[in-house]
Amino acid sequence: MANIILQIAGGIMLLSLVLSLYRFFSSGTLVNRVIAFDTMTIISISLIAMITHYSGRTIYIDVALIYGLLSFLGVVVVARYLEKSL
């Protein structure tokens, strides 16, 4: 029972990944694309956490830890680039 619910949750996460990919390509200013990139990184953190469940190895959560701490820096750098104060 729990496994089936978790698989549905993983499917919904993949769907939202694809939907934010749509935002990356439609309406083409750079800021919109960066928002899509940010959302994709946030979704992929929870996708990594789901993969630790699917593969059954709890040690994989370390990768999510590093992702959660480092992934926001790319977006911050792009923001600094946009406001021309890098």
Partner: peptide
């Protein structure tokens, strides 16, 4: 655990990027 010298070094360099930001 997974990880090692290269990964740890890259993370330490990222702390420097955070200071720069």
């Amino acid at each position: 655990t997974p990880g090692g010298g290269f990964q740890g070094g890259a993370i330490i360099a990222t702390a420097f990027v955070l200071l720069l930001m």
